[in-house]
């Protein structure tokens, strides 16, 4: 599985959404599934997928699907 596939899978599993929702613009609170509970689950899912531990500020900055890709670069995860 490529890193991008892992990244998408983490979103789909944590937020229980389909591929069709996964665009760079998909944002926190833009869909009911990505609320604060969904966000915690998403962060846990991405940490597990890439075996990383986010800094707290990155958890707060992780506001869109696109922004998440930028943040993961800090953890040496290339998508």
């Amino acid at each position: 599985m490529t890193n991008m596939e892992k990244y998408k899978e983490a979103f789909k599993e944590a937020l229980e959404i389909d591929d069709s929702a996964l665009t760079d613009e998909l944002a926190f609170d833009s869909i009911p599934e990505w609320d604060s509970v969904g966000h915690m689950r998403l962060m846990a899912s991405i940490e597990d997928a890439f075996d990383i531990m986010f800094e707290t500020e990155d958890i707060m900055d992780f506001g869109t699907f696109g922004k998440g890709k930028e943040i993961l670069q800090k953890y040496d995860v290339e998508l």
Binding site: F28, S36, V37, M40, T56, I59, M60
Partner: peptide, 12 residues
């Protein structure tokens, strides 16, 4: 309760 801010607070 602002869930995201509380998560930020707890983890920080």
């Amino acid at each position: 309760m602002d869930g995201l801010e509380i998560m930020n607070f707890a983890l920080s």
